[in-house]
Design a protein around this nucleic acid. Structure first.
Lengths: 167, 167
DNA sequence: GCCCAACGACTGCCTCAGCAACTATAGCGG
DNA sequence: CCGCTATAGTTGCTGAGGCAGTCGTTGGGC
């Protein structure tokens, strides 16, 4: 196997992708204990951190990994489950808001502490503060380079510039 | 927004996931120029680095992000496209090997240089060697913790213990 | 005020992938 | 040798999500 597949660049991406996959799996398991899929958690997180716990469908799509049609369907499901509601936009009748319901907020509140604990247990807690800071700094630099137009704006959201993918 | 969503743990995962998403998007774009989907590239890479350019279906599933039925269908498609062939296992008639065809090897060879270049451009090349080493070291420690039973074995594959996810 | 291009949301159709059920084979116990 | 269980691979069914097309709405040009 003394070939191209041992290239350090390959192992580097391999490492990054393995970490992502591993963390995703852990998080997904914990989220589903609380009735969320990964996408649903990302959606409700994005909404909950926005002013009024709401976002227009398009802005929600821009902030998540979904297309607008994907957002339509996720919101469909979550509305059916009572976690979200659609609300007409008063000054643009084309738009509609997705709003987190009290039930949605409650379910999110029940989920978050455990989620933070999972992050601590499997990710941030694995490294001493100095190493973690270095890791995050490296990631930040790669992120800035690869930036897929992150933190896409909404009407007036994105109060801070450090975007954080919920799940 | 002075709430839980500014927790440094949240921003840490957010960063990691954003980097993954960004790199995935770049890689996918380049791979599709050469006729590969991300999964197909992962599959053919895993095969090409294995002895005889082949693996049993089950072992292939273990090394990728796919279930066995998923592997069946990807191999179906790639066989239809002439990149892979199925070969019966001589000493176990339940098993079959997926083997890379010459056409598959050629297409892979045409793809790899550009792929390595993409990695360099968007990931490893963004950091000076010292910072990169630190980043990889941190990732490695998290990987070891979260280890989703990585580097699952095949008949006699996995000659080195540093697993590298292809795409 | 009218027209038309742009935009927001939704729907039809498609592909992909997982789960569970099924078939064929292997290997073990008696 | 017979049967029983485990394993390898495939297939039916399902849900998720993207693309492209549609419909209603908006806003700018005139």
């Amino acid at each position: 196997m003394n070939n191209v597949f041992d290239d350090p660049r390959i192992t580097a991406v391999g490492l990054l992708f393995e970490v992502h996959a591993g963390l995703s799996a852990r998080f997904t398991a914990q989220l589903e204990e609380h009735g969320f899929s990964a996408v649903e958690f990302e959606v409700i997180t994005r909404l909950a951190r926005s002013p009024g716990n709401q976002l227009r469908m398009t802005d929600l799509a821009a902030q998540t990994s979904l297309s607008t049609s994907g957002v339509t369907r996720v919101v469909d499901r979550m509305e059916r489950d009572g976690l979200l509601t659609r609300r007409a936009c008063p000054n643009d009748r084309r738009s509609s808001y997705a709003v987190v319901t009290p039930k949605g907020m409650q379910q999110l509140d029940e989920t978050l502490p455990g989620h933070l604990q999972m992050i601590e247990q499997w990710f941030t807690g694995q490294l001493d503060p100095k190493a973690l800071a270095g890791l995050l700094d490296g990631l930040r630099r790669v992120r800035d380079a690869v930036h897929p137009c992150a933190t896409a704006g909404s009407t007036d959201a994105v109060p801070e510039h450090e975007a954080a993918t919920g799940s």
